[in-house]
Amino acid sequence: MKAVICPAFAPIDALTWGDFPAPQPEPGELLIDVVAAGVNYPDVLIVQGKYQTKPPLPFVPGSEASGRVAAIGEGVEGFAIDDRVVAFTGTGSFGQQVRVPATQVWPVPDGVDLAIAAGISITYGTSYHALKDRAALKPGETLLVLGAGGGVGLTAVELGKLMGAHVIAAASSADKLALARAQGADELINYAEEDLRERVKALTGGKGVDVVYDPVGGPMNLTAVKSLAWGGRLLVIGFAGGEIPSIPANLLLLKSASAVGVLWGNSVRADPVGQGANMRQLLQWLAHGAITPVVDTCFAMTDVVAALHHLEGRKVKGKVLLTISPAS
């Protein structure tokens, strides 16, 4: 098959498009003919050897995909050949075919565009797991979303509003904040121009926020911790800002607050039933128009280097997708 090949942990430009051994489904797995793949910030790190997991070389990158079932491994039930599906793959999505454990594959409802579905699992899956399972976000609570113009941040804004929260979106530019407003944010903070903590105080009457969703890390994390209300929860999503922060334990103690880690991919493997239910709920919301994914750019899969550089530049507003032709 044709695929994006990572021959060594190296800069993004070392990726190539070429022939790679076609995968075969093992027991408990499905083989998927890929239609589209989502591009995520960890993909940028994995190919450079900067992520916490390092696949055996050479490998095909790409952590999520949509397509149609091409083959069914022994013991798999509930799927048929040519079913429309979306999958969390970990690696392997940037190619014509990918094999995936069946517990990490979910049916795509009729009427949902497969290319749009390709970008649902990691961003929406992470945010829904974070807000529902890890923070137990309640209607009427106040949610502060950092990096609100990025791929996961926008989904947190949208889902937080759908779950009944009062949502404060924080980002570094006016255009990103406008996008967050369009996704349902009640209040906006431009932390490139405003003091985040003082603005949160003003917007909450000095109370602080119940939940902080932080995919950025860096120095903004400490400010966010100081902005928590009594009993508040800090969701540690990732470190797109590059710096892993240290959280002073006394700040959590003084507010009876919690810092909660969120790693959706491992949660899917540890709790396939619970996370499967979450994914089916998200796909139903998508089918009924309750959530509307924002797509920044759609690249051909052969242009993967340009797509990853685009994401790496941190100018992305919404989701980056790759599409593939079976004959490419």
Rank of each mutant, 00 (worst) to 15 (best):
A10C: 00
A10G: 00
P11Q: 00
D13A: 07
L15I: 04
G18K: 10
G18W: 11
F20R: 06
A22W: 06
P27K: 15
L30I: 14
L31V: 08
D33A: 15
D43K: 07
L45G: 06
K50N: 05
K54D: 02
K54A: 12
P55W: 11
P55H: 11
V60H: 13
S63Q: 14
S66W: 10
V69Q: 12
I72R: 14
G75T: 15
I81L: 15
V85A: 05
V86C: 05
G90F: 07
Q96H: 13
V98Q: 04
A102T: 06
V105H: 08
V105S: 08
P109T: 07
D110R: 08
D113W: 06
I116P: 01
A118Y: 07
R134V: 09
A136L: 12
L144F: 11
G160Y: 15
G164C: 14
H166Q: 15
A170D: 06
S173T: 15
A174S: 14
A174I: 12
L179N: 09
G184T: 11
A185M: 11
A185H: 08
I189G: 02
I189Q: 02
N190V: 06
E193G: 01
R197M: 06
R199D: 03
V200D: 04
V209W: 04
V211S: 04
Y213D: 02
M220S: 09
S227Y: 02
G231W: 00
G232F: 04
R233V: 08
G238R: 00
G238K: 00
E243T: 06
N250G: 01
N250H: 13
L252I: 09
L254V: 12
S256Y: 03
S256P: 00
A257S: 08
S258L: 10
L263N: 10
V268I: 13
G274C: 04
A277L: 08
R280F: 03
Q281P: 01
Q284D: 13
Q284M: 09
A287H: 06
V294T: 13
V295M: 03
D296T: 08
D303H: 11
D303Y: 05
V305K: 01
L311I: 07
E312R: 10
E312T: 02
P326E: 05
A327G: 00
